[in-house]
């Protein structure tokens, strides 16, 4: 399966189409998303009712197809860890404050997890397969896997694959309290939306090929593509700011292959989550960075420099779930 074009809404300059590697800035609790002009994608009337998750979904999805030069696609699969959490909390709050009476349905309708993929289909007039996977930190992995299965079955040639999670102030407060009960050090929470065009054949917009996709819900199991464990001593170099150590590489990994660049939130490799904030689908941002590195043929910023990456491993570990995707440039 091939990946690219890609579209990403994040805290970095990812949406404009420039290479974001050279301008990455660390995300803090106060950081604001760099949002596109959503009016280019949705009518102002529809926009007013939309939560950030829905906006990121429709703008990310539509712009990804535009970049691929496609009017539409055969299928849409979206991964989201918490779905439309803003509308969920909104409906819940009113439900209790109004003692289960006189509720307006808007936020309930939009709270449904599949409203993101559903809205994209609605705006595109797309009648194809429309799926939503909600599996914590593996949500994007299963959306990609679903696309791979559809393509393998011959049911689709082009699949729009998305990863969306939104953040609200209240959500961060609740997560902070929840983390405290489990003595878990809460990372800086972020949000974002990333979309990828997955295809059976190599298209003009294709950037990379998926060599291996691996997910595990079980903390005792290591995903296939990070076996053997990441080992030190790669060919690139990490500069100051991230780590003094050499870039880790994948020695003799999947299919005897080797990733010459590792993007991971675990500290083994370039920690992309510093620039996206942590959330269930933050790996979408990592995957976008990997595709941009292939496209530019180099990575050059104050933290990491690397020329002509051939294989990149994007890895994410969160709450006992681990996902990795090994990509090869085309």
């Amino acid at each position: 399966m091939y990946l690219g074009a890609a579209s990403c809404i994040s805290y970095q300059d990812t949406f404009g189409g420039e290479n974001p590697w050279s301008t990455l800035a660390e995300v803090t609790a106060e950081s604001q998303l760099l949002q596109p002009d959503y009016k280019e994608f949705v009518s102002p009337a529809a926009l007013r009712r939309m939560s950030s998750a829905l906006k990121m979904g429709v703008a990310g999805g539509k712009s990804c197809l535009q970049k691929a030069g496609l009017e539409s696609c055969d299928a849409i699969t979206v991964g989201t860890g918490l779905g439309c959490v803003r509308d969920t909390l909104k409906f819940m709050k009113v439900m209790y404050e109004e003692a289960e009476a006189g509720l307006s349905p808007t936020s309930f309708i939009q709270s449904t997890h599949n409203s993101i993929a559903g809205q994209i289909a609605l705006l595109l007039g797309n009648h194809g397969y429309n799926m939503t996977h909600v599996q914590g930190g593996l949500s994007l992995g299963y959306a990609l896997s679903d696309a791979e299965l559809l393509i393998g079955e011959g049911d689709a040639e082009t699949v729009l694959v998305g990863a969306v999670d939104e953040k609200t102030e209240e959500l961060v407060e609740l997560l902070t309290k929840l983390a405290a009960t489990a003595n878990y050090e809460l990372p800086t929470i972020g949000e974002g939306g990333a979309f990828f065009l997955a295809s059976k054949e190599r298209l003009p917009s294709s950037i990379a090929k998926v060599v291996e996709l691996s997910m595990t819900n079980d903390p005792t199991v290591t995903p296939k593509s990070v076996t053997p464990p990441l080992s030190r001593g790669g060919t690139g170099s990490l500069n100051q700011g991230q780590s003094e150590e050499k870039l880790p590489s994948l020695q003799g990994g999947v299919g005897g292959g080797q990733a010459d660049l590792v993007l991971s939130n675990t500290g083994e490799g370039f920690n992309y989550v510093k620039y996206s904030g942590e959330h269930f689908t933050s790996i979408g941002f990592g995957l976008f960075l990997a595709l941009k590195a292939f496209e530019a043929g180099k990575v050059d910023n104050p933290y990491v420099s690397f020329n002509h990456p051939k294989r990149i491993l994007v890895h994410h570990q969160l709450l006992g779930q681990e996902m990795s995707i090994l990509l090869e440039t085309v």
């Binding site: 779905g83 599949n114 993929a117 939503t132 996977h133 909600v134 997910m215 595990t216 005792t220 199991v221």
Partner: peptide
């Protein structure tokens, strides 16, 4: 079940 495990949510 330690392998493939996902949740579909399409209402």
């Amino acid at each position: 079940i330690t392998g493939y495990a996902t949740t579909i949510s399409t209402a």
